[in-house]
Design a protein around this nucleic acid. Structure first.
Lengths: 339, 339
DNA sequence: ATTAGAAATGACGACGTTGTCACAGACAGG
DNA sequence: CCTGTCTGTGACAACGTCGTCATTTCTAAT
């Protein structure tokens, strides 16, 4: 690899002068600059990040710790958003997947330390509370898609309650009154929040929500969920006073609703409106009719996580905001108006 | 951050002795070792990667360049596989997403150089030919999910032909004779190879393949595909002598086949068997009936890419193998036997 | 007790970069 | 001519680690 010294020798100047030019220091004669730049180009000089860093600078590498998000279809957009923000400043992401393994996570923290990362984004696969240990980690830690159990770290999370509200409000606005709900597993935050949003929408419309129409779409502990939306949905749709629309905990649940409808020879949206959550495009865009759903702002979460981290680096903050990002409806073809 | 010097001072030994202990050098007295280890632990010493690297070692960071794979549902498993292999040796992946942007790719190559990465995995979102420039990049470059146009780089690719063969053979074995095919766009390698595999299976069974039953499931140029599988499938299934089974170019196409079947009140698998490709679990596991499909060995591609890179580092190879990884059938519920 | 050899430890420098400071030369004003 | 200021350039040190080699301490054999 080409070093400053080699360029300097070739150009007949001192190392420092070359360094100045590489770093855009204006205190260098125009003629010298042009001559040296030529050599830099020719030798394809690229500054040695390790050396720069050791010199005392901070690392331009950020850590991205996650249970599975980085390698999971659901929320890779968090990574994309973070990288987009980082790119502008030529910074990089070191991505660590713990798969929920605490020992692995510990190893990765060690690795982050070894690389002297300038900050860490801690992202989870689904919206939840999280305790980040690492009290002796001096650089900022920002949570994405999860929030600090102790409220001691800035975090970026989706507005699940608003998303649930949007789902219900959309259907109510289209004339639906009997609306089924197929939830995610009960012990995650999103389930509670979305449920609250749905109920709020009913209240705001002056209607009462029929609790018997809310069923679980999946069961089991976190990370070991089993889908039961198909069965639950078949049962729900077989009832005499079956709902005219179904709100789904996510797009995979919606997929099973489509399957249940097909099983019963019901046609969407004619016989049944369906609204999903997550906007997993692999599903939502390819289903026919395509799926109206609520998007999770993952890209934005990633992008703002980086920005929040940069701010946190400046203001040496005790300030730990919890930033809520909106979940907009993505309107497609799976809902129709009643009457 | 704690340095060797600080540990050494605290322990009352020389820097070098601490260094020896950190690196497991046996030439150090047991008593000293234990005493120092205690201090290491207490101060939470973590070796500075930058300093180590500058000292002359190689970087333990590998680059992962990709058009979109790292942040795309389709093939994130390549990343997972690579990381799994890397983890064992405490090595890391620097992930770069070009989104097909050549300027961005150039920037990332510069970044890889800046970090003095020990090697690069170049992965593509779909199986294709690729030209890697970077003739002056001294460390190994291994291609994953694509192969070198000039055959000058080792590459790991899925056995698409075998996968196509498996799809057809599976259906033929289950008694199907009229078998529809909904392909991906024609100008990608996978389409051709899988088509060849399907035809080979028919030949091996002593049957002839009805070319009129092969239709495109999507159209448009690469990266701008549009799904038309639903329409194509509805048409195919509306014909008098409709196929009893359909081979899909991927699971998204299969999803549209399910939708088409529902549209026509046909039930899967009773009235129609469906077999997918890719095993995108979000789809294949959640559809009801769940989707029999062919898995792409993405995880394995990632894992072996790392191993191939390690080998390439040792043998300073002119040798550039093209390694084919099998695509196994994942049997679920979407196919039934005829007669 | 002496000595040879082995075991344990430490001093030093180099890796590539950049901040600090010093120096050389140009130029203006007195 | 001297002084002061300004511009351009370079010498040097330091960052943290580890290989090389020298030095010290210990062990065992005479």
């Amino acid at each position: 690899m080409v070093t400053l010294r080699q360029v300097a020798e070739r150009a007949g100047v001192s190392i420092k002068t070359v360094s100045r030019i590489v770093n855009g220091d204006p205190a260098v004669n125009a003629k010298t600059r042009i001559a040296v730049q030529h050599h830099l180009e020719f030798l394809n000089y690229v500054p040695n990040h390790a050396a720069r860093m050791m010199r005392g600078g901070s690392s331009s590498i950020f850590g991205f710790m996650t249970d599975a998000v980085a390698t999971t279809p659901y929320s890779v957009d968090i990574v994309r958003g973070a990288q987009a923000a980082l790119n502008e400043k030529n910074q990089t992401l070191l991505i660590a997947n713990t798969d929920g393994d605490a020992k692995l996570e510990k190893e990765y923290w060690r690795m982050f330390r070894a690389h002297r990362v300038a900050g860490v984004i801690y992202a989870s696969m689904f919206h939840r509370s999280h305790m980040v240990g690492q009290p002796d980690f001096k650089d900022p830690i920002v949570l994405a898609n999860c929030f600090a159990a102790l409220g001691d770290r800035p975090s970026l999370i989706p507005d699940d309650e608003g998303g649930g509200y949007a789902q219900a409000e959309y259907l109510l606005r289209h004339g639906h009154r009997r609306i089924g709900v197929l939830t995610l597993i009960p012990d995650i935050v999103a389930t509670t929040l979305r449920g609250a949003g749905i109920r709020q929408a009913f209240r705001d419309a002056g209607l009462s929500f029929d609790e018997s129409l809310e069923q679980r779409g999946m069961v089991g502990p976190v990370h070991f969920e089993r889908m039961i939306a198909f069965d639950a949905c078949v049962k729900m749709l077989s009832a005499k006073d079956r709902p005219s629309a179904i709100i789904c905990g996510n797009d995979q649940v919606a997929l099973q609703v489509y399957s249940a409808a097909a099983h019963l020879d019901l046609h969407i949206p004619r016989d049944l409106s369906v609204i999903g959550f997550d906007d997993q495009k692999v599903i939502s865009e390819n289903l026919r009719p395509s799926l109206t759903t609520v998007a999770l702002p993952y890209f934005e979460i990633g992008r703002q996580a980086v920005e929040t981290m940069r701010e946190a680096k400046q203001n040496d903050a005790n300030w730990a905001p919890k930033i809520l990002l909106p979940c907009p409806i993505v309107e497609r073809e799976s809902c129709c108006a009643i009457r």
